[in-house]
Amino acid sequence: MQRRTLLKGTAVAGVAVLGAGFWALPGGPRPAALSLAAAQQVLADLQGRALQSLRGWSPSEVFNHCAQSIDYSIDGYPRLKPAWFRHSLGPAAFAVFSARGGMRHPLDEPIPGAAVLLEPDNQEAALQRLRSAFVRFASYQGELQPHFAYGALSHGEYAAAHVMHLYDHLSLLRLA
Rank of each mutant, 00 (worst) to 15 (best):
A138W: 00
Q128H: 08
Q145A: 13
E109R: 12
G21C: 07
Q47C: 13
A99W: 13
Y140P: 03
I74M: 08
S154P: 10
A39F: 03
G151S: 03
A152M: 11
P78E: 00
A33R: 11
R131W: 04
L175G: 15
P31G: 11
Q123A: 07
V163K: 07
L166T: 08
A67Q: 11
P106H: 10
R3Q: 08
V96Q: 08
F148C: 13
A149H: 03
G90A: 09
P146W: 07
A160F: 00
G113S: 10
G21S: 11
P120I: 04
L144G: 02
A161E: 02
H162R: 03
L89K: 01
L118P: 00
R174M: 10
T5C: 00
A37V: 13
Q141Y: 01
L46K: 12
G151W: 06
S69V: 06
G90I: 10
E61I: 02
P110Q: 03
A67G: 09
I111S: 08
R131K: 15
V163Q: 03
F137Q: 12
A125V: 03
I70W: 00
P106D: 09
P110N: 08
H155T: 07
G27D: 14
G156W: 01
F148W: 14
V12S: 08
A114P: 03
G28P: 10
S98K: 15
R49P: 12
F94I: 04
S35G: 12
L144W: 05
L46S: 03
L43P: 02
A115N: 07
G156S: 11
W57K: 10
P146V: 07
Q52R: 15
G9N: 04
L118Q: 14
E124I: 04
L172T: 05
H65W: 02
L54K: 13
L117I: 12
L36W: 01
V135S: 11
L117A: 07
L25H: 01
N64H: 02
A95M: 15
A32N: 12
A114Y: 07
A99N: 04
A93M: 12
L89N: 02
S35F: 07
A93I: 11
L173A: 13
D168Y: 00
F148T: 11
R79I: 05
Q47H: 14
G14Y: 05
L173F: 09
H87Y: 06
R79H: 10
Q2M: 01
G27Y: 09
A160E: 08
Q40Y: 05
G27S: 15
A38T: 03
G90E: 08
D75C: 00
G56Y: 07
A38H: 10
S132I: 00
G113M: 08
E143L: 09
A161W: 01
Q40F: 01
D121A: 14
H87T: 15
N122V: 04
L80T: 09
Y150C: 01
V15L: 13
P78H: 02
Y167R: 02
D45S: 10
E61F: 01
R55Q: 13
V116Q: 11
A92F: 01
S53W: 06
H65V: 01
Q141K: 14
Y77V: 09
A20K: 07
E109H: 06
